[in-house]
Write a protein that binds this DNA or RNA. Structure first.
Lengths: 233, 233
DNA sequence: ACCTGAACACCGTTCAAGT
DNA sequence: ACCTGAACACCGTTCAAGT
């Protein structure tokens, strides 16, 4: 009966921000820098401590544990989304801009892709973003739960496209990227799949960024078309 | 000029499978069991060694490092997808079944959500699944690159919906889940967002599984509708 | 109120040594 | 050909002790 409480940074009251010493914001900012530069594995309490010229364990005064620190960093990234006012630009345009800015935020902070499947986004900035997104689809004309369904359909699409993109970039960063090497490797891997072999020879692997941008747009338009159809029937 | 080679288990020739001693399959199987039971963090070379009653370092004879082991486990999960023959059931039905089986596979192996943003899916089973998916959209009538775009639109949708679902489940597993606790917590968090507050009172948090199933279907139908529209214009 | 270092229980991985 | 244990360089976190 007495279930343990669901705990997360967001359930706890934040420590008062007194002026002396370090601050939570400062720590989170430094953590994000480290994450951007070195990825999720690059962030350790010791390294972060050193970066702030403090003992590794000093951080535990400001943050209960590393997971909470990640929750805080994660929420910052949600704060980078821009969700236009649908009354001004129309819902389709607003949805497009939102989708693109989401993709950009994830590409800017590749570690966020690792957190998507691990931490629910319950921080204040994430909630605010979610609220503004709902507004987009509410003005589009969706009613009741359909507002939520529509919202998560497009966010799901963005997550889903950007995630493998990030995975790919990560793999490329760890090694050197050489289009020719890659091509031969894929050709070997795709030996048994004629259809796939065919497209290894396209420009897909010379200019993956452009191909992905086109692919993103194709899918986004389709998703929005599909949602629009729900409105008119 | 001499870029380092892109390395991954799949570029390397597998060791011959001689009968004595342990085998790669056995190790991967045990790894997946551990992953399913304890999650990504639960898998350590030492624990896995113990499970196979072997020294932790014995495993390095079969596998170059932990990352390769994860690549192998990841590919197994891709092997669990069922992609029906579109000639038999029609492309929409085939796409639906594929989407549902993908979602199921991810929910069965929650650790796969953590790998989606980290490892490109280049294993043989992943490639085979990708090939069969392409066939679905090729028979639907897409041409050239559009086949790939359509394919990744629906896979992206499935990733994107299932990922936060897995994240949520993970968070719930770590603590006890109590709908009432959760509700009060969310009510507090959503204090500033009236629209959101409203739906905390729905059945959404009493029976999240059903709500998610409905949401999944809503989005899937929309995505397929949107793709169908590309075919007819 | 804030910060520290030592200590604990873990990691992945290398390598010389064994059979 | 296969397996081992010791060793190295890391982790996150606790806690008594300092200012």
């Amino acid at each position: 009966m007495n279930a343990k409480q669901f705990t997360s940074v967001w359930t706890r009251d934040p420590r008062k921000t007194t002026s002396p010493g370090r601050s939570r914001e400062e720590i989170v900012k430094a953590a994000i820098e480290l994450l951007d530069e070195e990825g999720l594995d690059g962030l350790s309490m010791r390294k972060l401590g050193a970066k702030l010229s403090a003992g590794a364990t000093s951080l535990y005064w400001y943050v209960a544990n590393k997971d909470e620190l990640l929750e805080l960093a994660y929420d910052e990234m949600w704060g980078e989304l821009t969700v236009p006012d649908p009354e001004e630009v129309g819902w389709r345009e607003a949805a497009s801009v939102l989708a693109y800015s989401m993709r950009q935020a994830m590409l800017r902070h590749p570690w966020s892709a690792d957190l998507l499947g691990r931490l629910p986004a319950l921080g204040p900035k994430a909630l605010q973003a979610a609220d503004r997104m709902r507004r987009v689809f509410a003005t589009a004309g969706f009613k009741g739960m359909d507002v939520d369904y529509a919202t998560s359909t497009v966010t799901a699409y963005v997550y889903g496209t950007t995630l493998p993109e990030v995975a790919w970039n990560n793999a490329m960063d760890r090694h050197e990227y050489d289009p020719d090497e890659m091509r031969t490797m894929l050709r070997k891997a795709a030996r048994d799949f004629p259809d796939m072999l065919e497209r290894v020879n396209t420009e897909m692997y010379d200019d993956p960024a452009t191909v992905r941008a086109v692919a993103f747009d194709f899918g986004l338009v389709s998703v929005l078309d599909g949602l629009e159809r729900r409105l008119t029937t």
